[in-house]
Amino acid sequence: MTKVKYIRISSIDQNTGRQEVNAKDFSKIYVDRISGTIPFQDRKEGKKLLADIENNSITEVHVNSIDRLGRNIIELLTMIEFLNQNSVNLFVENIGMYSLIENKPNPSFKMIISVLGNVAEMERSNMLERQRQGIELAKAKKLYTGRLYGTRMADDEVLNKYKIVVKELKNGESLRRAAKIGGCSLGTAQKVQRLITKL
């Protein structure tokens, strides 16, 4: 039996220590430093994990909590179905439960994951609503100078605004270093990099 663990943290500066406390129990650990809103199949280590599963080299996957796999309930259930079809048992540590029992889907697991997934979606929706309300309040007090909520910059505007980041990335600098030099977040640097690759 090949048992592995998948770890996701939201930023490059976050520590994976809490999720790696039992690292010695696994033959391999996959670590993604990326937002939970990014689909699992679009993550660097997520892709590797899916490929290894399809190659029948994994029988059991552990995650610290279900939101490490994603924050969208449909994506979560699709991922669990993929694991079930490949006879891969998923163990979620914070609820102490397996997705399969004697190689058959665990109905209690699916029910609990559905509830947790819906709660995670609701929390994210509430967070975005609080953010919107905060911006509206700041605008009313004439304290907000950012873009209007729900609007987005065109690709060429992003590249023009972050010329330094574009230059550093083209010169081979790392995302983290380019973000620091360009005075922006890592997420912005990642977006700039995606735009550059499309040019």
Rank of each mutant, 00 (worst) to 15 (best):
V166W: 05
M111C: 10
E93T: 07
N103K: 15
T151F: 00
N86E: 01
E102H: 12
E173L: 11
L77G: 04
D155M: 07
K24P: 10
M1H: 08
I101R: 13
I9R: 10
K163I: 04
N56C: 02
L77R: 05
S99H: 00
N55C: 05
E102T: 08
E102R: 11
L83G: 03
E129P: 09
I38V: 15
T78Y: 13
R194F: 11
G150I: 06
R132P: 02
I66M: 01
R18E: 07
A189M: 11
G172M: 04
Q19G: 01
R152K: 15
N89K: 08
R124I: 03
I196N: 05
K198S: 11
K167H: 13
R68D: 00
L186S: 02
A120G: 07
A154P: 02
Y149M: 05
G146W: 04
V4L: 10
R177W: 05
V192H: 02
L76V: 07
K198I: 11
Q19W: 10
L143M: 10
V192R: 05
A179M: 00
L77M: 13
T78I: 15
E129Y: 10
T2D: 10
K47A: 05
Y98D: 14
T2I: 08
N106L: 05
L175H: 06
A23C: 07
E45D: 10
N56E: 12
C184A: 03
R71I: 06
L175P: 08
Q41K: 15
I80S: 00
E157A: 14
N86M: 09
N15V: 09
V31A: 07
A51P: 02
N56K: 15
L169R: 02
D32R: 02
I95K: 08
E168D: 07
S57H: 07
N84P: 01
G17L: 09
V92I: 08
I58Q: 05
Y149F: 08
T59C: 12
I38T: 13
A120P: 06
A189R: 03
S99Q: 01
Q41W: 03
K161A: 06
I53Y: 07
A140Y: 11
Q85L: 12
C184V: 08
D42E: 14
I58S: 06
I80C: 04
I38M: 13
I80K: 00
L137A: 13
N55T: 02
K44A: 09
V166F: 04
Q193T: 01
T197Q: 15
R132Y: 11
K3P: 00
T59N: 15
K44H: 12
R176H: 11
S27W: 10
N22W: 08
K5C: 11
F82V: 12
D32Y: 06
K198Y: 06
E102M: 12
L50N: 01
I101Q: 11
K191D: 04
G187D: 09
K110F: 13
K48S: 14
M111F: 15
L169Q: 02
E121W: 01
I113A: 01
